[in-house]
Amino acid sequence: MASVKQVQVTFDCAEPERVGRFWCEVLGYVVPQPPEGFATWDEYGRSLPPEERGSWFACVDPSGVGPRLYFQRVPEGKTAKNRVHLDVRVATGLVGEERLAVLEAECARLVELGAVRVRLLPADEDNESCITMQDVEGNEFCLD
C-alpha cells in the first residue's frame, strides 16, 4: 500500500494572488521560483492564454515542513461555512491570560493584513481559548 508523501491545501477563490499573498504573510510562506525559462512569474503569466492569466497562485513553506498552498480561481462566490479550515497555531502550550495575550496580538496583526475577527471562543472544561477569523475572501480559520 502506498503512503502519502505530501499534502497540498487548495483554496477556491475569486482572486488567487490576493488570497495567496495574504496567507504568505500569515504563515511566513514564500512564492516559489517561476518555471524554468522564465525570469519572473509575470513573464510566465504573459506566456499563458488570456483566460488562464491569474487563474491560480501557489506558495510554500520555506522550511519545507508545511504543506504547499494552492489558490484557484472559481466562478462562484463563497456561500456557506467552510467544511475544512486551517488552525493557525500561535499559542500552542499556553493557557489563560498568557494565551489570550498571544492570540490577541496575532489577531491584531492579521486584521491589519485584511483578516476579519469573528469571535473569541473562551476556554471551557475541554478546550483552551481560540479566535475565529476570516481571511480576505471570507474563508474561516482559527487562531489557536
Rank of each mutant, 00 (worst) to 15 (best):
L94N: 07
K81H: 11
T79W: 06
G54N: 07
E43G: 03
V90G: 00
L86G: 02
D87S: 01
G93L: 10
P75G: 08
G96R: 00
D87L: 01
D87E: 09
R83I: 14
Y70F: 14
S63G: 12
V102D: 03
E52S: 15
R99M: 12
V88P: 09
N82Y: 03
P75I: 07
R109N: 13
V60A: 12
R109I: 03
F71D: 04
D42I: 03
H85R: 12
E52T: 08
R83D: 15
F57P: 02
V90N: 00
V60M: 01
A91M: 11
L86C: 07
R73G: 07
G64N: 06
E104W: 02
P62K: 11
E98G: 08
A101W: 04
R68G: 01
T79V: 15
G96K: 02
E97D: 15
A108E: 15
V84T: 15
L48A: 12
S55L: 10
E106V: 12
E43I: 00
R68V: 04
A108R: 15
P49F: 07
Y44T: 01
K81W: 01
E97S: 14
P62N: 13
V90A: 02
L100W: 09
A108F: 04
E52D: 14
A105F: 02
C107G: 05
Q72C: 09
E106R: 15
W56P: 02
P50I: 06
R109P: 08
G64E: 02
F71W: 07
R46T: 14
G64W: 04
G96N: 05
Y70D: 11
V95A: 13
K78V: 13
E51L: 09
V60R: 06
P62W: 10
G66L: 00
D61I: 02
G77S: 13
V102N: 00
A91G: 07
E104Q: 15
V65H: 09
E51D: 12
R89Y: 03
T79A: 14
D87H: 04
E97G: 07
L94A: 14
R99C: 10
D61A: 07
E97M: 08
P67V: 04
E104L: 08
S47F: 10
W56N: 00
K81Q: 13
E52K: 15
A80S: 12
D42Q: 15
A58M: 14
K78T: 05
G54D: 07
L86H: 04
G77P: 09
E97T: 14
P49E: 04
S47L: 05
C59H: 02
V90T: 11
L94D: 01
Y70A: 08
G77Y: 06
E76I: 11
G77T: 14
Y70P: 04
L48K: 13
V88Q: 07
F71P: 01
P67K: 09
E106T: 11
W56A: 01
C59Y: 05
R53T: 00
E51R: 05
G54C: 04
R73T: 12
F71T: 01
P49N: 01
G45H: 00
T79F: 08
R73K: 15
F71S: 06
A101Y: 07
G64Q: 02
Y70G: 05
V65R: 11
L94V: 05
G45C: 05
P62Y: 10
A91H: 04
R68D: 01
E43T: 05
S63C: 04
P75R: 06
S47P: 05
W56F: 11
G93W: 10
V90E: 00
